[in-house]
C-alpha cells in the first residue's frame, strides 16, 4: 500500500506540512481564513535538531503497537490504514504512550488523533504531500 515517506535531505523545516494537515480537516476553502489565529494541532510534526529536519507521521505499522494497546477497540487497521473511531475512544492515551514514533496525539475533543492518510477528508494524495514545497514528503508504494 502507499504510505507517506519523507526524504529528509529535501526537508526545509518550513512546517507547511503541519499547516496543510490542519487545514485538511477544516472543510474551508481558504487556508489563511481557516487557520488565522488558530493554534494548530496537526497529525504530522516536524522534528528538527542540528540542522536536520524531517516530518513524522503515522507509519501504519505492520505490527501496530497503538492498535494492540487500545483498550476500547477504537484503533483498528482497515486495508492497511490505522483508523481511529472517535466515538469509541475514551482518551486514555495508552496509544500515545506506546507509539514508538510519537505519531499519535491528543485532540481537542478528548479523543486521540493520528494521520489517516486524509481518507476521511478527501480522495487522493494526502494534503501534507501535495503541500510540501520541496517534494520532501512523498506518497508512494515501497513494498515495506
Amino acid at each position: 500500500m502507499k504510505r507517506v515517506y519523507v526524504n529528509e535531505q529535501w526537508c526545509l523545516g518550513c512546517h507547511l506540512c503541519e499547516y496543510y494537515c490542519a487545514f485538511a480537516s477544516t472543510n474551508e476553502k481558504d487556508m489563511a481564513r481557516a487557520l488565522k489565529d488558530v493554534k494548530i494541532n496537526p497529525r504530522i510534526r516536524i522534528e528538527e535538531k542540528d540542522g536536520i529536519s524531517f516530518a513524522v507521521s503515522c507509519r501504519h505499522c505492520d505490527e501496530p503497537l497503538c492498535v494492540k494497546s487500545c483498550i476500547t477497540g477504537a484503533l483498528t487497521k482497515v486495508n492497511g490504514i490505522i483508523m481511529i473511531d472517535k466515538n469509541r475512544c475514551i482518551g486514555c492515551y495508552t496509544c500515545v504512550l506506546s507509539c514508538p514514533y510519537g505519531a499519535v496525539y491528543p485532540s481537542e475533543d478528548g479523543a486521540i488523533q493520528k494521520c489517516e492518510l486524509c481518507i476521511k477528508t478527501h480522495e487522493g494524495t494526502p494534503k501534507c504531500v501535495t503541500g510540501c514545497p520541496n517534494g520532501a514528503i512523498v506518497f508512494e508504494e515501497r513494498g515495506e
Binding site: 483498550i71 476500547t72 469509541r88 475514551i90 482518551g91 486514555c92 478528548g110
Partner: peptide
C-alpha cells in the same frame, strides 16, 4: 473500561 463507564466516558 469499567472505570471509564463510571466516569461517563463510555
Amino acid at each position: 473500561l469499567i472505570s471509564y463507564l463510571l466516569l461517563g466516558k463510555t
